[in-house]
Design a protein around this nucleic acid. Structure first.
Length: 278
DNA sequence: AATGAGTGCAACCGCTTTATA
DNA sequence: GTATAAAGCGGTTGCACTCAT
C-alpha cells in the first residue's frame, strides 16, 4: 500500500551543496528533465534526499532564475501582492518571473518589512501603525479606505464587514450581504459573504475593439485589464479603463460595470508601468 | 587584531495537500 | 474508503559575511 520511501535518510548528505553535486544535478536534469524527485538522487549519483534536490534546483540552479538585486518596481509589486495574498510566497513568486518563493520570502523578511516599518506601515496588515482603526477587534475586518466598500482579508474570516452607511444602496436583499447587527440609527452593519475566492490574478491586454471608449484619447497601450479571479463573476475586477464612466448619476455602478474597489485597489486602472518587469 | 552584533540567504523542518496502491 | 508517500509550501535555523567597537 502507498509508495515506497523517497530516500534513505541515514545515507544522505545535508548542508551546503558542493560544486560537484550542483553539476551532477544540473546535468541530470538537462538530460532527463525535472520531476521524479524520489528517484532522481540515485539516478544522478547524488547522496541527497529528493526533496533536497528539488529545493536546490528550484531555488538556486534553475537556468531561468533572475539573480541580483530586486528593482524598485519589483519591491512595489511584492508589497502590492503581499497586501492581496498575504504570505502566499509561491503565488507572489508566480507573478515575478525569475524569482523564487524562497527568495521573495527572504527578501520580504530582510528588506521590505523594514522598508514598510520605516514608512510607518505594519508589514503584516499593510495599515499605518498609528491608524486608530487598528484598535478595532481583529475579527472585524476593516475597510482600508474610508467611504468606499473595500474588503480586507486581514483576518482569516471568510466574511468582510461592509459599512452600509457608506453606501445605502447596498441592501440585505443582495445575496452578497447579510445584516449582522443594527446600529442606533436603525441602519445595519452588513457582513459581506465572500464566495469561494480564487485569488488568481490575471492581467490581460486591454480590449481594443470597443468603440466609444472613455479612454479613447489616452495611450491605450499603457493599460491592462486585471481580474482577481472571483470565479464565474465579474464583480471583482478592474478594467482597462473601458468601465470608467459606467457609473450612474447616483454614483452606483450600473449592471454592466465590472469595476469594483477590491481589496484596496482603489482604482479602475492599473498603470502597467508600475507592474512590469525590467 | 579581536570580537560580538547585525544581516542575508541557502537549506532544513514540519505541516498540508495531492497522488497512488 | 483508507493508508501511505510524494510533492509543495511557509516558517525557521544556521552559517558566512560585514561592520562597528
Amino acid at each position: 500500500m502507498g509508495r515506497s520511501p523517497c530516500c534513505e535518510k541515514a545515507h544522505t548528505n545535508k548542508g551546503a551543496w558542493t560544486k560537484e553535486e550542483d553539476d551532477r544535478l544540473i546535468s541530470y536534469i538537462r538530460a532527463h528533465g525535472e520531476g521524479s524527485w524520489r528517484s532522481l538522487p540515485k539516478a544522478a549519483g547524488l547522496l541527497r534526499c529528493g526533496k533536497s534536490c528539488r529545493l536546490r534546483w528550484i531555488n538556486y540552479l534553475r537556468p531561468d532564475l533572475k539573480r541580483g538585486n530586486f528593482t524598485e518596481e519589483e519591491d512595489e509589486l511584492i508589497i502590492k501582492l503581499h497586501s492581496l495574498l498575504g504570505n502566499k510566497w509561491s503565488l507572489i513568486a508566480a507573478r515575478l518571473p525569475g524569482r523564487t518563493d524562497n527568495e521573495i520570502k527572504n527578501y520580504w523578511n530582510t528588506h521590505i518589512r523594514r522598508k514598510l516599518m520605516s514608512r510607518g506601515i505594519d508589514p503584516a496588515t499593510h495599515r499605518h501603525l498609528n491608524d486608530a482603526e487598528n484598535r478595532v477587534q481583529d475579527h472585524e475586518v476593516q475597510t482600508s479606505v474610508a467611504a468606499t466598500n473595500t474588503i480586507s482579508f486581514a483576518s482569516s474570516a471568510s466574511v468582510a464587514v461592509v459599512k452600509q452607511e457608506q453606501d445605502p444602496s447596498i441592501t440585505s436583499k443582495s445575496s452578497m450581504f447579510e445584516v449582522v447587527s443594527n446600529n442606533k440609527d436603525g441602519r445595519g452593519t452588513l457582513l459581506e459573504r465572500c464566495p469561494d475566492l480564487n485569488l488568481e490574478l490575471t492581467i490581460s491586454p486591454p480590449r481594443m475593439n470597443e468603440p466609444d471608449q472613455p479612454f479613447k484619447n489616452m495611450d491605450r497601450s499603457l493599460y491592462f485589464g486585471c481580474n482577481l479571479g472571483m470565479q464565474n463573476s465579474n464583480d471583482y475586477s478592474c478594467g482597462d479603463g473601458s468601465d470608467i464612466g459606467n457609473t450612474t448619476s447616483s454614483g452606483k455602478r450600473n449592471s454592466t460595470s465590472t469595476a469594483y474597489d477590491f481589496l484596496g485597489l482603489k482604482t479602475d486602472v492599473w498603470d502597467y508601468r508600475r507592474l512590469k518587469m525590467k
